[in-house]
Design a protein around this nucleic acid. Structure first.
Lengths: 190, 190, 190, 190
DNA sequence: CATGAATGAGGATTCATTCAT
DNA sequence: GATGAATGAATCCTCATTCAT
């Protein structure tokens, strides 16, 4: 449980993994990851027992980063719309600014290497967001749905928006706004 | 004059690929696919030059099936809402009824094995859908967006709905409807 | 033993084999040979039981062609030098004019696919040449060697000359002559 | 700091390759080579990136050995005939004593796996021999030919002699001498 | 006889993981 | 701990040959 090993190397490995997976997919050899991280092939396995472990920890780390980004300075006391827009902006901005990390999360999400346990862990800590969604629901046609439906909907529209902007970067602002409006209408419409 | 290439075998290979990829991911060995299809390992390559080709043809075949399912009996002359709901129902139904095919499409979509050409081909034939989205846009806040934004939005919500239902199958109907309403509001809301 | 099958197809197969082996080596697939010959993959095996058989028959055929070329109009009654030069010219000319056949003979000679029996057969019919070599030996330092040594020597110098000319084609005539002189001196020198 | 790459294993692989290629031709599986070398199948590829690389390095190694054998104790200041005979003896002796290596060189020379670069490298370091040939030319009918023609001639006669002796080992000495005399007369005759 | 699909034993190479140094 | 050589199962694909049509 103790982790006496150098955290720098661990981070270097994860960073290398992000870069390489974004470029070449989940099948990148561990040896390549180690080399890009400036670490020996064998040492990778003192930081991560198996490749699968590396992938799971990477997934968690990225999800944590995304969540921190969205929620650490979340304006709890602002108006509903301000808060919703805040979430939207932080997530979409992250997806655009860190397209490699975004891609990796996407790849890992559909892969079969992420354990249930990891998935569960990655979904914790979104209380503020759930609350927000519930508040939004109150006004509209989705009022009887569980908040999880709302967050899934939000996530799906944010992802769609990020991917659409990736294809049409010159009109980023326009789709950024349009996406949010669509979300707002979807959830609050009656 | 020789034994003709048998479409049944081709289909068996594709079906085996669907089953195995849904279960085990894109990394299933071609040998397993051949075995499940009841065909020798080498024969697979008389039907598909490479594994990549198999994957591309599979992708196309599945997309074609989805499209046919959505559009072959599309009620062109029905009201906008009926038509929208028709698309929604057919796609979502397909995703739920053929969760293995649905998973395979998802996996292939994010993989790097699908060629640009294949992607392009898979996007043809959606004119009716584009038209429908444009009609919907006319009424709402998204009126200035390209129809592609609308179809992306539709696709993303249908997928979200399918996946949500897969997690909560006992309440399928409820989320099925909720998803549609969300979509309707998202696109027509002002 | 009877060979009722179309000799044209057999010849086409051998010709295709010459071309492809010269270009790509002995490992050319039989399927390629068949295709270039305009014959189906399986039919190749009605003309030649195995690939090895094809190779052996090809070797023999080429050797026979070379021999015919050298000896069919051999000037039996001409002077020794004229006869020697005749052999030299005919063989070297063949090697240069049919570099593909020449290459194939060379490849087959060192390969392990030619049976002893084939090698033996390919060495028959050189009586005139042996006689000539023996006549040459009479005058010089090699007088006590078996004629086979002389023919080996001749062959080796002709091959060397062909290969040298292949590398320096612009000065073909010069090396052609020089080779012959070297041979003449080698065998008749005292 | 890790286990260092062992030159013994590299040598064992090369030696195994020599043995097996001499016996079975260039198509020996890498797996067999590894097994005979007492090394795991995968390890072969830590010593040689590809089979082609193994073959090229083997070729070079053998050529270097032959050259060293011929030239390392070459009697630079001896008479022309002594020097010529020295070359002849060393090369022919090598060919007879190491018939497996000799065979491998022959096979590789005609194969298409040897890169131009490798061929070029393998031809360096023969200055003494070139000089010797040129000296011999001075006396005879070949005086106007480039020295390369002379070395080609020498090589071709040495190879012929080795192969002839391989077929008639009981009379090795006789053909050994005869070959040299033939060479001497070929090059110095007028 | 001709055809070319079917077969399946290889074959070169890769790669996660282990372990000697 | 760090290193990278060692391992060998696994993978995609090839190809001579057979055989159904």
């Amino acid at each position: 449980m103790a982790r006496p090993k150098s955290p720098e190397k661990r981070d270097a490995l994860l960073a290398a993994a992000v870069q390489l997976i974004a470029e070449q997919g989940l099948s990148v050899p561990t040896s390549k990851i180690a080399k890009v991280a400036g670490i020996s092939e064998g040492s990778l396995f003192t930081y991560f027992e198996t490749k699968e472990t590396l992938l799971n920890e990477l997934y968690l780390e990225l999800k944590v980063e995304v969540r921190a980004n969205m929620l650490d300075t979340y304006p709890t006391h602002a108006s509903l719309e301000v808060r919703a827009r805040y979430i939207w902006d932080m997530y979409v901005r992250f997806g655009i600014a860190h397209s490699d990390k975004y891609k990796v999360i996407t790849q890992l999400s559909v892969s079969d290497s992420i354990r249930e346990q990891t998935k569960r862990l990655s979904m914790e800590g979104y209380e503020a967001l759930h609350a927000m969604v519930q508040e939004m629901f109150a006004y509209g046609a989705l009022k009887d749905q569980p908040y999880a439906f709302g967050t899934a909907l939000l996530l799906s529209l944010m992802n769609m928006t990020i991917e659409f902007i990736a294809l049409h970067p010159s009109e980023a602002d326009r789709f950024w706004d349009a996406g949010f409006i669509a979300f707002w209408n979807a959830v609050t419409g009656s």
